[in-house]
Amino acid sequence: MDYCFHLEEGFKITSSRKKINLHYGAAIMVAPIFILLYNTLFSHQILDLSAISIDTKSLFYLIVFYPIVEELAFRGVIQEVIASKTEQYPSYLYISVANILTSVLFVLMHFVHHTPLWAMLVFIPSLIFGYFKEQYKSILPSIFLHMFYNTCSLFLIL
């Protein structure tokens, strides 16, 4: 009986992790669609081939450096601090209050260098990054996801 009980628990834990992994895969797959949708709606040119060929430093910053620094700051520090203060509040559709507030701050930071529309549109990817940070209890998945989203925005050509 105990063996069956432990087996059941192990099965629940395994299936829960499988579900999160499936969600993670879906988040990866939806990235190109999201970028394509944005560019269709706003006719935003997403790729400058000549800039890539002559500015590899900017490529490194965009695909590697910035995602790491941003995730350390937002998901690593800000979201955890807010979470420690708001853990008594329930989540909405799997999105915690800390994730929402962190994403709002993320959007506000984007107003500095981007058009308001572009800045507001990063809210959804930010929620996704925050979700997986909470699910995996690690910022590594959100860092990789952030890198992938930035890469998609560069290499998708309409």
Binding site: S58, Y61, V112, H113, N150
Partner: peptide
């Protein structure tokens, strides 16, 4: 249109004065 600022989550613009200030704030948090 600058590849350094396109993408889903990039806040920095190396061609702007405010790049340094913004970058340092985020890096310090990190």
């Amino acid at each position: 249109g600058d590849p350094a600022s396109s993408g889903g989550g990039c806040t920095y613009n190396p061609n702007s004065k405010s790049f340094d200030m913004m970058f340092f704030i985020i890096a310090a948090l990190g």
